[in-house]
Simulated assay, not measured.
Amino acid sequence: MPSSAAPTAAAPGAELAPRPTPRRPLRSALGLLRACHLPPTLAVTALVTALAGGSGRDAAGCLLVAAAVLTGQLSVGWCNDRVDLARDRAAGRRDKPLVTGLLAPRTVSVAAGCALALCVPLSLAGGAAAGAAHLTGVAAAWGYDLGVKRTLASWLPYALGFGLLPAFVTLGLPGRPWPPIWSLAAGALLGVGAHLTNVLPDIDADLAAGVRGLPQRLGRRRTRALAPLPLLAACALLVFGPPGPVGPADWAALAVTAALALATVLPSTAPPSTAPPAAGGWRGRLPFLTTLALAATCVTLLLLHGAALA
């Protein structure tokens, strides 16, 4: 996004360059928490851990799942902020601790590498097959951060990451059962929907920064119209895919999902803006927030049919 400051000899965003202030451990810790995309990191960790418990993992197994998912998500979040540093400076992202100088770039790089290094043995602790499934999803997320998000294949890392989560859970169970196809397909569809809705508030700024993934190429209006479709399809698979009759809770979850999906396409009362997403308040992040709620609803359905996964 072009800077609104008057032209000077300095590079765009130079006024936001980090100041050489002492970095106390507490400041660095707070900065790392802000840079890791904490709400989605905790949400994904909690949801997958709950899914592991519902599918039959014991307490130790659930703890391993939580640790593996948490370290993987932390590594991806820190990688994202480190890779996007120049772009965030140019866009005036005062909500980013790297931009404001609360963190040094090297600190975030080291943190991402350490989290990834921990994620590998924690993922493999549940077995080679389960670990491979999770690490493939983590690798896809890193690939997204490192450049895939600028291509037409920007949806693929999300589809892989979310689609393989049921496999990570079930392949760590006794007997290493492969999850049913409906759970893999539902996870992949949920991932695609998460991708479309997550970038929706940032499309204008992304285009100004040269990011041309699938949603950016589709444009705001078409992306907003398309985003609910994979989410509704994911919920439908989770309702009608498991064996047995569809119960009242299934119908209720389907209705909730439909309402939440509708919320992602409601037009905003504010005019389009290229301001940083943080400046837009909750309205600008509504599609992303509803996606998290949709994910929770879908995982609730998986918990209701946890035995069917194995």
Rank of each mutant, 00 (worst) to 15 (best):
D58V: 06
L260Q: 08
P272L: 01
S154N: 11
A278C: 06
A29S: 03
A66K: 03
A275G: 00
Q73G: 13
T257H: 12
R283S: 14
I203K: 01
R176C: 08
R220S: 10
L184T: 14
L146D: 06
T269L: 05
A140H: 00
P2T: 06
P242C: 02
T300D: 08
A153D: 05
V138W: 04
D88S: 06
L70G: 07
L262T: 07
A234T: 11
L200Y: 02
P121S: 12
V83P: 03
A46Y: 10
A167I: 04
H37Y: 07
A249F: 06
V199P: 03
L189R: 01
G131I: 14
L32T: 08
R222I: 05
V265M: 12
T269G: 07
A159P: 07
A104I: 02
V299M: 07
L171E: 02
L98P: 04
D58K: 07
D145C: 15
G54W: 00
V169N: 03
A104R: 15
V48Q: 12
A46C: 12
A188H: 00
A139V: 13
G113I: 06
A10C: 12
D145N: 15
L214F: 15
R82C: 06
L238S: 08
D204G: 10
A252H: 02
L135Y: 01
V246W: 05
P243Q: 12
P243H: 09
S109V: 09
L85K: 00
G147D: 11
V48I: 15
S28N: 08
A153P: 06
L47P: 06
Y144G: 11
A43N: 04
F162I: 12
F168V: 10
G284S: 15
G219C: 07
A296Y: 05
A43V: 14
L63T: 14
T136K: 00
A132C: 15
S268A: 10
H134P: 10
V199C: 13
A129Q: 12
L214K: 01
V192S: 04
T8D: 07
A140G: 02
V256T: 11
A279C: 07
T257L: 13
W251N: 09
G54Q: 04
P179G: 09
G72W: 13
A66D: 09
L156M: 14
L124E: 03
P248E: 04
P40Y: 09
A46L: 14
T71E: 02
L85H: 10
L309P: 05
R222G: 07
P157V: 13
G147V: 13
T136D: 00
G61W: 03
A132M: 11
A296H: 04
